[in-house]
């Protein structure tokens, strides 16, 4: 048996989602049409809206339907500190920690030469302009502690230091609730080299 053209098209379209193969796509498609027509039309509407309206914030490159996102427009936040992160999910993670009140810059990736992602693709030229224009006092590099994340952090450091901007890198070490025994050697080495004197 073959599905009708509209069904086949929907199944094909669903496959653009990460981790969705032909079988899952078929299951989703049949569920939406058989059990949840209302959900299907609201999904269609939401998708349409998001695709049409959501764009990158002009200042931090995070997703937003406004010209400048809520965080960047918030006057109660500290506008002299910018935290550089790799993805919008990282912004959410830092926001949920409630420990940071400055602004962000979202790279939407990291330098990854093997994948062909260079400084321009992650908006570093625009970031440099922004830092100079806004007279930012400190840039916190919160890229991931992976080889690519470190390369990105180094590239940024080299770009910003000659412009008199204070650059700092987030600490890495043993996670809360972790056990030293299970932490890998290089994380432990980082934890030791970045140790702090205990203050009274």
């Amino acid at each position: 048996m073959k599905f009708s053209p509209a069904l086949t098209e929907l199944i094909e379209a669903l496959r653009c989602l990460p981790g969705v193969g032909p079988k899952s796509a078929q299951r989703m498609c049949l569920h939406l049409l058989e059990r949840d027509r209302e959900g299907a039309s609201s999904l269609a509407h939401a998708l349409q809206q998001a695709v049409e309206r959501v764009d990158h914030c002009r200042r931090c490159r995070n997703f937003t339907e406004l010209d400048i996102c809520e965080i960047c427009a918030d006057t109660r936040r500290d506008h002299s500190v910018i935290c550089v992160v790799e993805t919008p999910a990282d912004v959410l993670a830092v926001e949920q920690s409630g420990s940071y009140r400055g602004l962000y810059f979202v790279l939407m990736g990291h330098l990854s030469p093997i994948d062909g992602i260079g400084p321009a693709e992650i908006g570093l030229d625009r970031f440099q302009e922004r830092v100079v224009e806004e007279g930012v006092a400190e840039v916190i590099l919160a890229t991931n502690p992976t080889v690519e994340g470190e390369a990105t952090a180094y590239y940024l450091t080299d770009m910003l230091l000659p412009r008199g901007v204070k650059v700092s890198r987030i600490a890495h070490g043993v996670p809360l609730g972790g056990e030293l025994e299970y932490v890998d050697g290089s994380t432990l080495a980082h934890a030791f080299s970045g140790r702090r004197a205990v203050e009274q």
């Binding site: 080889v147 996670p175 609730g177 025994e181 932490v183 890998d184 994380t187």
Partner: peptide
């Protein structure tokens, strides 16, 4: 996936 403060990704890094 994290288990007791460590994950595979910490070991799976280039140049090691």
């Amino acid at each position: 996936r994290r288990a007791r403060g460590g994950s595979l990704s910490a070991t799976l890094q280039p140049f090691r």
